[in-house]
Amino acid sequence: MRVQPGIRKFLLGLLTVALLMMLAACGGGNAGNAANEGAGNTGPADQVTDGTDDGRPERTVEISVAMVTDVGGVNDNSFNQSAWEGLQQFAEEHGGKVDYLQSQNDADYVPNLNQFVKSGRDLTWGIGYMMSDAIRQVANQNPESKLGIVDDVVDAPNVVSVTFKENDGGFLVGVVAGMMTKTNKIGFVGGSEIPVITRFEAGFKAGIEAANPDAQLIVNYTGAFDAPDQGKAAASTIYNSGADIIFHAAGSTGDGVFGQAKELRNAGRDVWVIGVDKDQAQTFGNDITLTSMIKRVDVAVRTISEEVMRDEFKGGEVVTLGLKENGVGLPEHNPNLPQEVLDKVEEFKQRIIDGELTVPENP
């Protein structure tokens, strides 16, 4: 059939308009994607996409992780804060919803844990040795939930327990203190006298003895992890006894140790503090922080949260992190330590890793 010239022109016109509309739509879609990429993740904050080898999405996982602090609080400049930083980094890297509840006293532990568990969080952390009974109770009452605890072992099929070899890290800062002291008197301020803290003391004492057998260690337990005034009083007593270096393992109670040291520094005393859990020079300054014993709670919390994201949660597992696993140690930068001290620390570190030296767990 022959098409009349007028009709042919009309059909060609319609085809041209259709093609132009298709091209415009394609161009608009690309511009929108570029804008979204520039703005970051504009989708739901709690979605994580697993991809196949060719980059196409395989499935979308909604991940929600929460933590409950002990009484030290999330801004303790110590392990609670480190754990929260680990969860925040997890969310930044993978997406996901993270949150915390702060416990004012031990009566808050079970209600806070239950609040997250009952709301369907994929993983709920209890941070600190003092939360072990609460974790055990909540885990037994909610067998389908997934929980984690830092600093103690809870024997339950739905709990992952993370512990650290604080004695190994304590040994290294003990070597530092033994080599750096000018008075041969060194102090240790602990929170409660519980196994996780006595491991710090045991390692610290052994490291001092290995580096300087003539040095004396003065020990003071305050009985609290949230009492800077008690930390200040304990530090005052130890410094007044002639010590020039104090290592604290006392959570936010240790803030008072730094406060007392600063006062004495301003009065002309040459005193130092060794920080704990985090590089506390970042908080209190290199002018008062000799070094710190790092305890990588942030890495542990983030790593196990990633396992939950990948459906690889290992309930009942106990994860122990020491020098070999890079779970404890000194900060990367130590501007106050001479090279000979750093070399000696590295020597002892390697001996511990190689099994030539066993650090005691009890003072």
Rank of each mutant, 00 (worst) to 15 (best):
L14E: 02
I135A: 09
G32F: 14
M131Y: 04
Q4E: 11
T69A: 04
G96N: 02
L321A: 00
S305C: 09
M131V: 11
N184I: 08
A45M: 09
F164S: 01
L290G: 05
G178K: 09
N158S: 07
G128M: 02
D133I: 02
I246R: 11
T52Q: 13
D50E: 14
E201R: 14
R351W: 00
G259D: 06
G43Y: 08
N220I: 10
A215S: 13
S82N: 12
N266S: 15
D46C: 08
R59S: 13
A243L: 08
D133L: 07
M1G: 13
N33C: 12
V276T: 06
A156H: 06
I208A: 07
P338T: 00
S78D: 00
R269A: 15
E263G: 13
L342W: 01
G327R: 01
G254V: 04
N266Y: 10
L172S: 00
I238M: 11
F204N: 06
V175D: 02
I127H: 07
W125A: 07
V219I: 14
F10K: 11
E317R: 12
A227I: 01
L264C: 10
G251Q: 03
S252K: 13
K118D: 14
P331I: 00
V189W: 07
A139V: 03
G95L: 05
T320W: 01
I288G: 08
E356T: 00
F116S: 03
V68C: 11
P213D: 06
T198A: 04
Q81R: 06
E263A: 13
M22C: 14
Y129A: 06
Q88G: 14
L11R: 08
I245M: 06
F10C: 07
L217P: 13
S292H: 03
T289W: 05
E58K: 15
P338Y: 00
Y221W: 03
H94Y: 13
N184W: 10
Y221A: 05
L147M: 15
L172R: 00
F204A: 07
F188W: 04
G322M: 00
E325I: 00
G55M: 11
D122A: 12
Q4Y: 11
D298P: 13
G28E: 14
D226N: 15
V162Y: 02
G51R: 15
T222G: 11
K232F: 11
N220D: 13
G174F: 01
S192H: 10
V153H: 05
G96M: 02
L357A: 00
M21W: 09
V71M: 05
Q47W: 10
N158L: 08
V297S: 03
N184T: 08
Q4H: 15
S292M: 02
V160G: 05
D54Q: 12
A18I: 13
L101M: 15
N112E: 02
L290Y: 02
V153S: 03
V150E: 00
V68D: 06
P338G: 01
V301N: 08
Q350G: 01
L357N: 00
V301D: 05
E144W: 03
